[in-house]
Simulated assay, not measured.
Amino acid sequence: MLMKPIRIIEICANSAQSCVEAEMGGAKRVELCAGIPEGGTTPSYGEIMTARELTSAIDINVIIRPRGGDFLYTPAEVQSMLHDIEMCKQLGVHGVVFGCLTKEGDIDVTLMRRLMDAAKPLSVTCHRAFDVCRDPFVALEQLIELGCDRILTSGQQSDAVKGISLIAELVKRAANRIIIMPGCGVREENIVKIEQETGAKEFHTSARRIVYSKMVYRNENVPMGSNVVSSEFETVETDRKKVAAFVS
């Protein structure tokens, strides 16, 4: 009897508690990030350490991204990334996630190799910097040559459903030399479509729910940041039930 290939789910986790929820829901791996509204930035030492302490059976990959915005980094930002990679190694995480481009929009092979050498022996995923590179097929071969384990991609579109055509071509060209992992807009209602039409086996999603504040006294007139979506008294967190739905 032929066995159906196992679908591997990676959760974009915004906190140590989200890592716990992801593990309880049966996810294989998390990408631990801070700064979700910015597309993900490097979490703190404390957040990474707590995630390690509160979980036992899930792989933790940490995003190495010193700021939001583009993926052209200054020498000071590179130094910060190197220090953060060293921190991740000391904390014993499974892997790190980063991506660097040249000003012309190509993979910065020299910088990527420097970061990857620093990251050894951790697993390395190239994040969605790939989605804004100039030539995805050239970038694919460069990342394979560099030794990246996987590429997180929406197929250079605003979400993975719109990017199905490119993702499918990347999976075909990768030919099992690197993992192509669709992400961005992967939902319970469309994951089967993405899976069937791309041939991908790993998927990246958030599976979050809104968590409402338990504060009784509330001053709604003082926002804490310029990018507040709704309320200072709402946050988001991974939902183990949503994770379980993806896994099954």
Score class of each variant (00 low, 15 high):
Ser231Arg: 08
Glu10Cys: 09
Pro223Gly: 12
Glu77Met: 06
Cys19Gly: 06
Glu21His: 04
Thr74Asn: 13
Tyr45Ala: 06
Thr50Phe: 05
Ile178Arg: 00
Met81Thr: 08
Pro43Asn: 05
Glu189Ile: 12
Thr125Pro: 04
Ile60Trp: 00
Gln79Val: 07
Gly46Lys: 04
Phe98Cys: 05
Lys28Val: 13
Cys33Gln: 04
Asn14Leu: 03
Met224Ser: 13
His204Cys: 08
Met24Pro: 01
Gln142Val: 13
Ile210Arg: 14
Ile60Gln: 02
Ala22Lys: 01
Gln157Arg: 14
His94Glu: 11
Val216Tyr: 11
Leu140Gly: 00
Gly35Lys: 09
Phe130Pro: 02
Lys241Val: 15
Asn221Trp: 11
Ile11Asp: 04
Tyr45Pro: 03
Phe233Ala: 09
Gln156Tyr: 07
Thr110Met: 08
Asn61Val: 14
Val229Ser: 09
Glu189Thr: 13
Ala57Gln: 15
His94Pro: 04
Gly95Ala: 11
Arg114Leu: 13
Asn176Tyr: 13
Leu170Asp: 00
Ile60Leu: 08
Thr235Gly: 11
Val236His: 04
Ser231Gln: 09
Ser18Lys: 06
Ser165Asn: 15
Met87Val: 01
Ala207Met: 11
Val78Gly: 02
Ser230Asn: 14
Glu188Ile: 15
Asp84Tyr: 01
Asp59Arg: 08
Ile191Gly: 03
Ile191Val: 15
Gly163Met: 06
Glu234Lys: 14
Ser44Tyr: 03
Glu195Leu: 12
Cys126His: 09
Ala174His: 07
Ile48Lys: 01
Ala27Glu: 04
Glu86Arg: 13
Ala13Phe: 01
Ile6Tyr: 03
Asp106Val: 09
Arg67Trp: 03
Thr41Lys: 02
